[in-house]
Write a protein that binds this DNA or RNA. Structure first.
Lengths: 350, 350
DNA sequence: GCGCTAAATGTTTACGTAAACATCGGTGTC
DNA sequence: GACACCGATGTTTACGTAAACATTTAGCGC
């Protein structure tokens, strides 16, 4: 039968290579390479001819061959613990956008849970896939664990952690944000500020808590016990119920907007007025925060700037490769207090 | 000076190649390749020796060389219009996780805005970086535009659109969700359901709107004019103010949770009780929706399942490559009504 | 023990690119 | 006018892997 011999059914036409373009344009493949990489030492007429041939043949450089030859992938890896937080999503967005500007692609490596195998798996997958550098977005005390190591010589930037001098770190100025929140409440006349903290395993949470404590102490106030949540609205709700039941509580600083939201729901349920009875400040400035009821006073993080800085720092390292490798910096991105309607001066006690 | 000659400062040790491992283990590099790829025809003792050598030398396969040789990258590209929506983030999370299970990496290509150049840029970046297939998460009417084309022969799965038979499409069952929302409100005794729709440029929005309209008609009710929003809380707020000012409005179905949130804020501002005066239903089931005030009745989308299905469909195509290429399916993921406290039977008119 | 088969392993080659080196005119210098 | 130089282009080679083919060895039937 005719069908059993000859070409397999509709095999895809082989992608044209440099050689094909070179033949079509009547030049050597090296000249095509030079045009492809934008080298200057090609005659204008030749360049035009080569470009025409590329168009005609639909030539696309083969990234694998290019990477094999040049050792550069034009790709950066991003390791994230979760894509489920607003902050990470925004950061990723900024990273991807900024990387695209620099003509880099982003390879996303999720870490489903924070077990060692998972993290190690992410690293090995990373080092097998080709990347020129890595941005790690997670709590970096895991990095201190000696059980796994990053591929040596791979530039790394860490976001959102307190990793030491071994890495370049980019982070929101957690301390400044917590201070702004606390001072805002004190400035309104509150005598005490309660704090719903993030989990102790989170460095950003710890930084916020420490800064809240310090701000109170600097104002001559003895900080009340910290109430630890887990970032969820549910934990905010739980602490909101507890705090709302006491009439010595007039101001709450929650370490993120979700917990602030949960706390406000609890206060509503208890019939307490926000901000009449109790003021609430969040942290993050979620998209929705201005539509919470009441609209939430909060600390805005500039996630976009964090992502941009991370890429810039990383590409600096990638370009300096093998040289200057020890120049690790700490980049801090400022926060901003956004005053809405969940905060007010405390009602004068009758 | 001594430093001007000799080796450059601390040049990174070259990564070991198969040849190095082969020499170390006393076998040929081809045997190393066989071990590396898990082929069966290697003696157990030899395999063990090779694996030891790999460990000893810290061998990692070079993905560029592997891709060059085999034509497979073990990478899939994801093109997204925005990472700023809850749904896309969740979908991306699921895609990345599922891909990792199948030992694929995910290359993220953001499209900053929906201009043709942007989209074309994303495609060309994609075809230059090596990917075995693509998942496109955006409104696919752009795909109908002839100005750009996907690299021919590249398997594609489209999420969240009504692309035609040329692509495999995975999507939430928008129609079912809108019907569930509308029927829930009718079932509570409301005589009319108003709709705050998503933008007309969004297919999922259009599907929800159409299904809402059909459900009302099927119940013998003439649908009121559609109020178009843009997914933002702000637009929900605007329509909420308008609808809340009329006393013939008792039930609102918003096409996403953000708009529902905005609408509820408007109703609060107008002094209308939710759900006493007006019931509100959203769509998506945001993480925070159960902590809105009141907790929001909404339609839960299973973004995780959408992502999983997309990967499965795509990998099926990748594996079938060049064969069976025309087998495009439409996979629909069911929704679920989550009843909370923003809906109730209408108050009996006095 | 001969020839056969199959399993284990080795050898050769090509994938597409870009660096390194080679060549070839033309130009300016003395 | 001989020579050095430079810019444009061509030629050769190596990157690390895996497919295709070649070789060796052991086991087995008769």
């Amino acid at each position: 039968m005719a069908t059993t011999e000859g070409t397999p059914v509709a095999r895809k036409a082989a992608r044209p290579s440099m050689g094909d373009v070179a033949r079509h344009a009547g030049v050597s493949s090296q000249t095509v390479s030079r045009v492809s990489n934008g080298h200057s030492n090609v005659d204008a007429a030749t360049r035009a001819r080569v470009i025409d041939s590329m168009r005609a043949l639909g030539y696309r450089p083969n990234s694998a061959a290019r990477a094999l030859r040049s050792g550069r992938f034009r790709t950066i890896g991003v390791i994230m613990f979760t894509l489920r937080t607003f902050g990470n999503m925004r950061t990723l967005d900024a990273i991807a956008t900024e990387a695209a500007h620099a003509n880099y692609s982003v390879m996303l490596i999720p870490v489903v849970d924070a077990t060692l195998e998972q993290v190690s798996g992410a690293f090995s997958r990373l080092s097998e896939q080709g990347v020129d550098g890595v941005i790690i977005v997670f709590e970096a005390h895991l990095l201190d664990n000696a059980e796994f190591t990053l591929p040596p010589g791979l530039p790394v930037v860490v976001i959102d952690s307190n990793a030491g001098d071994e890495y370049t770190v980019v982070d929101t100025d957690q301390a400044e944000g917590a201070r702004q929140a606390t001072e805002h409440l004190l400035g309104l006349g509150h005598r005490q500020v309660w704090h719903i903290a993030g989990p102790e395993s989170s460095f950003s949470a710890v930084h916020r808590t420490e800064s809240w404590r310090r701000t109170l102490k600097d104002a001559g106030i003895e900080p009340p016990p910290v109430r630890y949540g887990d970032w969820s609205t549910e934990s905010g709700h739980r602490h909101g119920l507890a705090l709302g039941g006491r009439d010595d509580v007039t101001a709450i600083f929650a370490a993120n907007d979700q917990m602030a939201l949960g706390a406000m729901r609890a206060l509503h349920e208890l019939g307490r007025d926000v901000p009449g009875d109790i003021s609430v400040v969040g942290f993050d400035d979620l998209e929705e925060a201005h539509s919470f009821w009441p609209p939430l006073t909060t600390i805005r993080q500039d996630f976009g700037e964090v992502g941009r800085q991370a890429i810039q720092q990383l590409l600096r390292k990638v370009d300096d490769y093998g040289f200057d490798d020890e120049d690790n910096r700490r980049v801090t991105v400022p926060t901003r207090l956004i005053v809405r309607e969940s905060t007010a001066s405390p009602r004068v006690r009758s």
